[in-house]
């Protein structure tokens, strides 16, 4: 072979290799941490307050079936056709728009999220008129819906219902649950991801002060009324009778996490502090001495109770 020709070929090969090497080495997959914009949502619908929503909905919430004496476990139904039943003898569940509430939203601030795991598949939303529970079939909501996050809930396609008389927002699907005693119950379903992401919108950066601005400082345990239910409250001088020894929620007899309640002394009365075995402070020892507690005043059966959002909700005085 002609040495020059050979040299030419070698030169071409050399360039091929260089090009390949450059090509491959340029295509580095390095990902810089991007700046993430705060969420933004501008509602075009008309705002109503949480209190207005409850007032509007109350006469349209009926019991699950005619045997229920009150609507404490009911859900939104069309008042004109409460005698329509499905194959499980449940009355038909409908959305807000089905009962004529169209182009409306509520706006509030998240006062309770699921960061610690004590709140699960729920968000507590509060405005200046009161609070309401958003039930969602998702976990890890606090990643985007932290305490202090302003949230706009487009109501039209959603549904409202009651659980032990407390209002909840969910989606217009009936779902079945089997209680620990084995009883089958139907009720309003938690929002599916579809409903949640389409109807519940975060707006702006979270700001804990926005939540704290709404809180009520209490000196005594109030009566269970709609204006206090599920709101953020603060008790400035409370004690825990079993402080220093017991933990918030020890493992159950079967070795699995279990929910537990401990007493909190407010003045002369006590109130239950209920803690999930899945919360990240379940095993923490209950504090001693005088404390300030900032937490959700939630509904459990017919009574009010305290739901801690995180362990930091209790501060020793």
């Amino acid at each position: 072979m002609n040495p020059n020709l050979k040299f030419n070929i070698m030169k071409k090969i050399f360039f091929l290799i260089v090009i390949t090497a450059v090509f491959i080495s340029c295509d580095k997959r390095e990902y810089k941490v991007p700046a993430v914009d705060a969420p933004m949502y501008v509602a075009t619908s008309e705002r109503m307050t949480i209190s207005e929503l409850k007032t509007y909905a109350e006469p349209k919430i009926f019991g699950r079936n005619p045997t229920e004496a009150n609507n404490n476990f009911g859900y939104l139904q069309n008042p004109d056709s409460t005698n329509v039943y499905d194959e499980n003898d449940n009355r038909k569940i409908v959305s807000f728009s089905d009962v004529g509430l169209v182009n409306k939203h509520i706006k509030g601030v998240v006062v309770g999220d699921d960061e610690s795991g004590n709140i699960y598949k729920q968000l507590y939303l509060q405005d200046e008129t009161g609070a309401i529970l958003l039930t969602v079939n998702l976990t890890g909501l606090f990643a985007t819906y932290r305490v202090g996050q302003e949230v706009i809930v487009e109501l039209d396609n959603l549904c409202i219902g009651k659980y032990y008389g407390a209002y909840q927002i969910g989606c217009p699907i009936l779902s079945k649950s089997i209680s620990s005693s084995g009883a089958t119950n139907y009720g309003m379903s938690r929002m599916t991801p579809y409903y949640f992401y389409n109807c519940v919108h975060a707006n702006g950066e979270p700001d804990v002060n926005k939540a704290n601005d709404l809180l009520e400082v209490l000196t005594a345990i109030p009566a269970s009324t709609e204006s206090v239910r599920n709101t953020l409250v603060r008790f400035k001088n409370v004690t825990f009778p079993n402080g220093g020894t017991n933990v918030f929620a020890p493992l159950g007899a079967d070795g699995k996490p279990a929910t537990n309640s401990v007493k909190m002394q407010v003045g002369t009365k006590t109130i239950d502090v209920r803690t999930s075995g899945y919360s990240n402070f379940a095993g923490d020892t209950i504090p001693t001495g005088s404390c300030t507690v900032t937490a959700i005043l939630s509904q459990y059966f017919d009574n009010l109770q305290i739901t801690l959002r995180t362990r930091k909700d209790i501060v020793k005085n």
């Binding site: 699921d114 960061e115 610690s116 795991g117 079939n137 998702l138 976990t139 890890g140 909501l141 606090f142 990643a143 699907i173 009936l174 779902s175 079945k176 649950s177 379903s189 938690r190 599916t192 991801p193 579809y194 990240n280």
Partner: peptide, 24 residues
């Protein structure tokens, strides 16, 4: 980690068969 939600998009809880609710 911590109570963050499972980021895998095909996690069974995000699929319609699950999100349609318990039971049916």
């Amino acid at each position: 980690y911590k109570n963050a939600s499972d980021p895998r998009p095909d996690y069974y809880r995000y699929l319609p068969s699950y999100t349609a609710g318990w039971g049916d």
